[in-house]
Design a protein around this nucleic acid. Sequence first.
DNA 1: GCCGTTTTCGGCCCGACTGTTTTCAGTCG
Length: 581
Amino acid sequence: MAEANRAVGRLLREYVDLLKLEEGSAQAFRVRAYERAVAAVAELTRDVAGMTAGELKAVDGIGASTAKKIREYVETGAIADVETLREKYPRPLVELMQIPGVGPKTVVQLRRELGVENLDDLKQAIAEERLRDLAGLGVRTEEKIARAIERLGLHSKERRIPIIRALPVAADIVAALSQLPAVRRVEYCGSLRRFRETIGDIDVVVASGDPAPVMDAFVGLPRIREVLGRGDTKASVLTDDDLQVDLRTVAPGEYGAAILYFTGSKAHNIELRQRAIERGWILNEYALADADSGEIVASRTEKAIYDALGLGFIPPELREGIGEIAAAAEDRLPRLVEERHIRGDLHVHSTWSGDGRSSLADMVAEAARRGLQYVAMTEHGENLAINGLTRDEVRRERAELDELAAGHPDLTILHGAELNIGPDGGLDYDEDFLLEFDWCVASVHSHFDFDVPTQTERILRAIASPAVNAIGHLTGRRIGKRPGIELDADAVFETAAATGTAIEVNCHLDRLDAPADLLRRARLVDGLRFVISTDAHHTTELSNVTWGVRNARRGWVERAAVANTWTRDRFLKWAAAKRRT
DNA sequence: GCCGTTTTCGGCCCGACTGTTTTCAGTCG
């Protein structure tokens, strides 16, 4: 994405926080307007530096004021209104809003009445027991803020944890609650159900006619360290590994409305509710109902509610308030890929690679057992010194594959490789040797901090090789651990499309790479194909295809663009075409 | 600040929980 778009996004996000203090409310219309603008900028596929004020204004969520500010940034490198507010509310003050339970009103009050300018000031004021005397606050609030500060860092409002940590915890809790006799249905919602790569907290919704025992059981689960809040139908807890879990119980007849509401996103919900209001209805977590009579229009299932609102069912992965509702209204939702469509796996390792953990025979057998029609065994190339295969090893591996093939008549086994993209875009082996493979994935495994032109050139060089069928884990990121490389993704997508090179959707939960936001840009590129591949290093990891598919869906990727949903013949013909060029 | 097939002015999503209050403000999702 263009550098200017990122910079504008950062500035507008900062402006949103500053405006919360200026307006004294996070719900002020001006705050919400700029929140929408931030989202609109994030989804722009054009470089803002090249857009006129008029073009900017035409974007949904960007009006005259925001357009002017963006132009101002492009022309001067700064936005005067942001700078003004920045002086009025210095960063250490703004950051106090990160403390759970502390919002803009409280920050302004603390500053006005106690002279609090930063976290140290606040800690001192608490130590001197001065918060308890403020209007609207009290001893309990003072203690609550003190506890929240102690946990800060672990539980700041901005803290997000990688999905790979949240998913197993959520699955455990859902499994435990589903055992309760009082629980009719239970499901995790929130950003986890939308399959965001990082999760703020885990939202669980239960349908039950008898909430009390459910709430009791929830706060008493073995892994719960602290109960943050507890009402009749709603509770929040911390697990022993510091994840916040919110539980909500509703009547069975309200379950659809409840999971819709708690799945979000916030922006999606707001748009849905506006649509309800236009029809004289009201939508909340219990039902879609008539605003006057209260008569229920729909509530039992999400589909019924979407139907009533004149919308097709919108899959959770799309619910980000970035155009999916308009698309549903006009019956042009993407025909998303589903797990059952996947016919092949095109990135699989065995113990031939140094980091593989299951034998070649076991991996192939598992691929066959899972009903795949084709699989590419892709050991590392020789340039990955520790894990890669020498030429001699490649030939011996091929011989073993030939023997295995006889035992699996229904599975087409491709002899592939995962090549290493060197710092200058060079690959393992030589081109003649590479063309002996049936399928090659090329991926970055090192040198993550080059600048954008260097990284882009490096990938483009790899794409230019006739032997390279796909670019593996495009950015090389590890979610929550290592940022990906920075590159001109649009240039990569255009060239990949033009050369018949696929973009891999890597299924590892800590990779999910290419990231969904890049996939949303990629899917707009005519002729670009994707492959959803597990990059499995053990037989159990072939099932990770579930996660890759969900990430692809989040990226609005359609089934038709995913090459490994195609029949064997169509896929093989397509893959061979590039290798002949 | 943004927006409009009811609108260019007058709206803007909705409710639980907490802690402070005696009817509500702030925060959160």
